[in-house]
Simulated assay, not measured.
Amino acid sequence: MKTLYSVFLAVLVYMPVSAQDYSDKITLAIHGGAGTITRANMTPEKEKAYKEVLNTALQTGYQVLKKGGTSVQAVEATIKVMEDSPLFNAGKGAVFTNEGKNELDASIMEGKTLKAGTIAGVTTIKNPISTAIAVMEKSPHVMMAGKGAETFAKEQGLEIVDPSYFYTESRFKALQRAKEEEKTELDHNAKEEKEVKKGPKTGALEENELIFTEGKKFGTVGCVALDKFGNLAAGTSTGGMTNKRYGRIGDAPIIGAGTYANNATCAVSATGHGEFFIRSVVAYDISALMEYKGMSLKDAAHEVVMKKLVERGGEGGIIALDRHGNVAMPFNSEGMYRGFIKNDGKSEILIYKD
């Protein structure tokens, strides 16, 4: 009898356990850039426009999760909404390089497998995030760049467009001003479309004269998601820097810097001055603090963005999500377009620091 009981216990222990259902924890968070975004610099019309697109993005990703889709599928659907909007520096609204081109970068990472896909410096792919996912799922590689990435996208049947598709007048004017000033401008860091005033000493454009009324903005859009299977994913997409040269690549397509996801810890997407995020390996650092120090998502994100990054002179922010549905969205700039949506379908969209 004792032997039978032991066998019964052994069977119970080694029986496969059905996967835990995380349907009540599905969560999705997004960002659309951080920077000098204040109420004083924002018009009601512009604020309304941004909030409408951000809400559409959140609801689009939420529907994917609610219907049982994966976190990767939700990230893709969400980011495509922002890539298709000229309001953001990704896809249609991408900024111009010094040569007058739009060069796009994107990345995706899956928390369950730690697989990732990224593309950089592409000029003809309508939705870079979709190609990044194809790199992850349909190639043995992690990163592809330039013409090679575009050839791969064509082979995968992804939508290719003429480079003129990405043109927006406001971004082109930002490039002209940047060239006139002989300096590199970060994302929306352009000046208002009105008479330019010169500073009394340096001749520099005044801080409050910005082409978009929300103010200076470090571009990039991103999304993190948790699906009903308990899997995390993070994705990021950007047009990079206005007036960038020499094939410059920022943090968005670099796994561990602008994007990272690990089911054991968190999913992270960053926005800000890319060079600092690369040097600080921001996205992975948050995950590492959780894994090795046992820190909570909130504490780890705060430590990296509000302390380490600030000490190193970096500006920007991140969105992060853990497997329990906890969300963190710290930023050290004056504002950050951000939002999240939980299982109940109610979205919250925030812009300003207060």
Rank of each mutant, 00 (worst) to 15 (best):
I119W: 03
E182W: 04
A153S: 07
N127Y: 06
K183T: 14
K112H: 02
T113C: 06
D187T: 09
E181T: 11
A132W: 02
T131S: 10
A153T: 09
T113D: 04
R177N: 11
I133M: 10
S139N: 04
K126R: 15
T113R: 03
E180H: 07
D162V: 05
R171T: 05
K154Y: 09
L114Q: 13
S170K: 14
G121W: 06
A149V: 05
S170C: 10
A153K: 04
E155D: 07
E150Y: 05
V161A: 00
K115T: 11
A132L: 05
E181I: 06
N189A: 15
P140D: 15
M144N: 02
E182Y: 12
T124P: 08
T113K: 03
P128Y: 04
S170E: 14
V135R: 03
S164H: 14
T124V: 14
V161L: 01
P140V: 11
K115F: 08
K183R: 15
A145H: 08
G157S: 07
Y167K: 14
M136T: 04
A120M: 07
Q156C: 10
Q176Y: 09
T131I: 05
S170H: 14
E159I: 10
L114V: 03
M143Y: 08
I125M: 00
A153M: 08
S164L: 10
P128E: 01
E180Y: 11
M136I: 01
L114Y: 11
S130R: 07
Q156F: 08
Y167I: 15
K154C: 08
A178Q: 06
E150L: 03
S164P: 04
L175H: 02
Q156T: 09
V161C: 05
